[in-house]
Simulated scan of single mutants.
Amino acid sequence: MSSTVPDTERAAREARWAESLRGHGRRVTRQRLAVLEAVEHAPHAVAEDVVDAVRAELPDITVQSVYVVLSDLTESGLLRRIEVPQSPARYETRVADNHHHAVCSSCGRIEDVDCAVGHAPCLTPSDTHGMTIQVADVLYQGICADCRTAAQAAD
């Protein structure tokens, strides 16, 4: 029975992703489902990690195909591309809100940070320059607790 639970959970996720793909005007393909599964399983993954995860399921898929799917899913709003300084782009499936990210400048760990206000945009600029602001993207940088502990132990 326990071996069917992961299959049942995966089938439920695939059904949810299939519905989302159709809702965004996209065909449901094994490649798209595999990329969505890989990114959901490893939030904040770089494209190379997504390629590795997808190839575990679809060994013949090309690197270029994974990049095309990542781009398409980002453009359609099913994935979010995160730009982190001195790091390749990262991807996540958490797209339904305007959350932010905290990045450890020592180890590179990334954590989600919910909006302080709770709705988009959660920051109000002093001057919008005539724009209707829809998203505020904040990147917090610091040292995570693990790196801080390790540094203190080394001292």
Rank of each mutant, 00 (worst) to 15 (best):
T29P: 05
R30P: 08
Q31F: 02
Q31R: 14
Q31P: 06
Q31M: 14
L36R: 08
L36W: 07
E37I: 10
E37V: 08
E37G: 15
E37H: 15
V39A: 13
E40Q: 15
H41S: 15
H41A: 15
A45I: 08
A45P: 08
V46W: 03
V46Q: 12
A47C: 04
A47E: 13
D49K: 11
V50M: 12
V50Y: 07
V51M: 06
A53M: 06
A53Q: 10
A53H: 00
A53E: 09
A53C: 05
V54Y: 12
V54T: 11
V54L: 11
R55E: 13
A56E: 09
E57V: 10
L58F: 07
L58Y: 10
I61V: 15
I61F: 07
T62P: 02
T62D: 10
V63T: 12
Q64V: 01
S65L: 06
V66Q: 01
V68R: 15
V69Y: 02
V69S: 07
V69M: 02
L70C: 01
S71Q: 14
D72P: 00
L73H: 05
T74R: 04
T74E: 12
E75V: 14
G77Y: 05
L78S: 06
S87P: 02
S87T: 12
P88M: 08
A89C: 05
R90I: 03
R90V: 03
R94A: 14
R94M: 09
V95Y: 03
A96C: 02
A96T: 11
D97F: 09
N98R: 00
A102K: 08
V103T: 07
S105E: 15
S106V: 14
S106H: 06
I110L: 04
E111N: 08
D114F: 11
C115M: 02
C115K: 01
A116Y: 09
H119L: 01
A120S: 09
A120P: 07
A120D: 06
P121S: 00
L123P: 04
L123Y: 01
T124V: 05
P125A: 00
S126H: 02
D127T: 04
D127M: 04
D127C: 03
T128H: 02
H129W: 07
G130P: 05
G130W: 05
Q134H: 13
